[in-house]
């Protein structure tokens, strides 16, 4: 759907309801969200973290996942909501250098953390090498899983370089090799419904400096 072309866009509705909710609720001292009677608004809390290098403080319903904080509160809609249950990997972001499913973690659990989303890896004018390689190798069709695939792919190469073993590492006492087999196994938490896997593997191999 096209955003903002009608009298009221979907985002305006979301914005209004979020602002209304922000007036209610209470935040206690020392980072403790106070208990609420059943009729009260859901508990809210403040959380501060850095997203793509930029310090941010948000007042959130404690239920807000990191994914929803990024998308609905910071308008960083590059990170996608696929299954919302940690099964598809579309929501993958990098937190303190590690890839995680942003749908399976609460925003309030990330006080002080440094979060990198697809918007922080590169820009349209200055693509991250992995973004450029995905374009070059056609590592997507519909593109919905792509931000998660790219965040995951960047982190996977770091994990192999750091010597973290995987299910396909033959000798777990030795460092894993930068092989296509290793990369494919480590990308199994990112599902692509269009089936761009072989092109994703080629893009990763190019960035890793190996051949797929």
């Amino acid at each position: 759907m096209t955003e903002g072309t009608g009298a009221i866009s979907r985002r305006d509705v979301l914005k209004t309801s979020a602002a209304g909710a922000a007036l209610a609720g209470s935040i206690g001292p020392a980072g403790v969200a106070l208990a609420q009677p059943d009729t009260a608004a859901p508990p809210r809390m403040a959380v501060s973290f850095k997203v793509n290098g930029k310090p941010t403080t948000l007042q959130l319903d404690t239920r807000t996942t990191l994914l929803d904080a990024l998308r609905e509160h910071m308008r960083l809609t590059g990170t996608k909501k696929g299954c919302d249950h940690g099964q598809c990997g579309a929501c993958t972001v990098i937190v303190d250098g590690r890839r995680i499913n942003s749908c399976l973690t609460l925003a309030v659990m990330h006080e002080g953390d440094e979060i990198t989303t697809i918007e922080g890896l590169g820009t349209p004018d200055h693509l991250h090498p992995m973004q450029a390689a995905f374009v070059e190798h056609d590592g997507y069709q519909c593109g919905y899983c792509t931000p998660g695939q790219i965040c995951s792919a960047v982190a996977v190469l770091e994990e192999i370089r750091a010597g973290i073993p995987s299910h396909v590492t033959e000798d777990i006492a030795a460092a894993p090799g930068m092989t296509t087999l290793e990369m494919r196994e480590r990308m199994s938490g990112n599902i692509c419904r269009c089936g761009a896997y072989s092109n994703i593997a080629e893009a990763m191999a190019q960035v890793a400096g190996t051949s797929a």
Binding site: G89, I100, V156, P165, I172, A173, R186
Partner: peptide, 22 residues
């Protein structure tokens, strides 16, 4: 990895990289 390899093997057989990180 050296002394309790069965544990490393079991861990990396489970879930996905993202989930194991958390």
């Amino acid at each position: 990895r050296k002394d309790y390899g069965v544990l490393t093997r079991a861990l990396v057989a489970g879930a996905s990289g993202q989930l194991r990180n958390k």
